[in-house]
Simulated assay, not measured.
Amino acid sequence: MATSVQLPGNVQLHLDGASRSPHLLTFESFELPASNQRELGEPFPPGTVTPLALRPSTGDNITLDNSIETIKSLQAQDGLLTKKLALHGTLLFRGIPIHDANDFSRFAHAFGYKPHEIIGIVVNRPELAPNVAPANEAPKEVLIYNHNESPQVPHAPEYIFFYNHRAPVVGGESPISSSLELFHRAQQEIPEFIEELGEKGILSTVVYKLGQQYVGGSTLRQAFGKEIIDGDDAATQRAKIEAQIARYGRGKYTTWEWQDDETLVLTHRLPAIRTQPGTDLPTLFTGLAAYWKNKLNEGTARGRPSPTQQLYGDGTPIPEKYLEHLVKITDETRVLHKWQRGDVLVYDNIISQHGRQPWEGEQSDRVVLASLFDSVVPGAYKQDDWGQVIQALDG
Results as ranks from 00 to 15, higher is better:
Lys140Thr: 05
Asn297Met: 05
Leu266Arg: 04
Val368Phe: 02
Gln309Arg: 14
Val344Ala: 13
Pro319Tyr: 05
Ser29His: 00
Val327Gly: 11
Leu15Cys: 07
Ile68Gln: 11
Tyr163Ser: 15
Ile71Val: 15
Lys328Asn: 11
Ile202Glu: 10
Gln310Asp: 15
Ile144Pro: 03
Thr255Asp: 12
Thr286Lys: 02
Ile273Ala: 08
Gln188Lys: 14
Ala246Val: 09
Ser177Gln: 13
Asp230Lys: 04
Phe111Cys: 10
Phe373Val: 14
Val123His: 05
Leu24Lys: 07
Thr254Ala: 14
His354Gly: 06
Gly342Leu: 05
Ala239Phe: 09
Glu141Tyr: 03
Thr50Met: 03
Ile176Val: 15
Leu80Asp: 04
Arg356Gln: 06
Val377Glu: 07
Gly387Ala: 15
Glu117Gly: 14
Thr254Asp: 06
Asn36Gly: 09
Arg356Ser: 03
Ala234Ile: 15
Thr26Ala: 09
Ser73His: 09
Gln222Ala: 07
Leu80Tyr: 02
Leu40Asn: 02
Asp385Trp: 00
Ile96Glu: 09
His337Val: 09
Leu326Asp: 09
Leu180Thr: 02
Tyr248Lys: 01
Glu324Met: 13
Leu143Tyr: 06
Ile228Pro: 00
Thr90Asp: 09
Thr254Leu: 08
Asp365Gln: 03
Pro282Ile: 12
Ile98Glu: 04
Asp232Met: 12
Gly211Met: 06
Phe107Ile: 12
Ala186Arg: 08
Leu54Thr: 03
Val215Asn: 04
Val215Gly: 05
His116Gly: 10
Ser19Gln: 14
Glu362Val: 00
Thr283Arg: 03
Asp233Ala: 13
Ser179Phe: 03
Ala133Leu: 05
Asp100His: 13
Ser204Lys: 06
Pro46Ala: 12
Ser67Pro: 01
Asp384Lys: 04
Pro46Cys: 01
Leu270Cys: 08
His155Thr: 10
Ile329Ser: 10
Lys84Ala: 13
Pro46Asp: 02
Ile190Glu: 08
Asp260Cys: 00
Asp16Glu: 13
Trp386Met: 06
Ile119Asp: 12
Ala86Lys: 13
Gln309Glu: 15
Glu196His: 11
Leu32Phe: 03
Thr300Trp: 01
Arg125Asn: 13
Gln222Glu: 15
Thr219Gln: 02
Gly9Thr: 06
Gln237His: 05
Leu345Thr: 10
Thr279Lys: 00
Val376Leu: 06
Val344Gln: 04
Val122Tyr: 08
Gln244Val: 13
Leu87Trp: 07
Thr48Ile: 12
Glu42Cys: 03
Asp260Lys: 08
Leu7Cys: 03
Tyr381Lys: 08
Gly171Glu: 06
Ala223Ser: 11
Asp280Trp: 00
Leu128Gln: 13
Thr236Leu: 03
Trp359Asp: 11
Pro154Ser: 07
Ser29Arg: 00
Phe104Gly: 15
Gln77Met: 10
Lys84Met: 10
Val377Asp: 07
Leu270Met: 07
Leu203Asn: 02
Gly112Met: 14
Tyr214Ala: 14
Val327Asn: 09
Ala110Glu: 11
Gly249Ile: 04
Ile144Met: 11
Gln276Asp: 04
Lys226Asn: 14
Pro168Phe: 02
Arg20Val: 09
Arg247Tyr: 01
Thr308Val: 15
Phe373Gly: 15
Ala246Phe: 06
Ser21Val: 03
Val367Leu: 03
Pro126Phe: 10
Glu192Met: 01
Asp232Ile: 08
Arg304Asp: 01
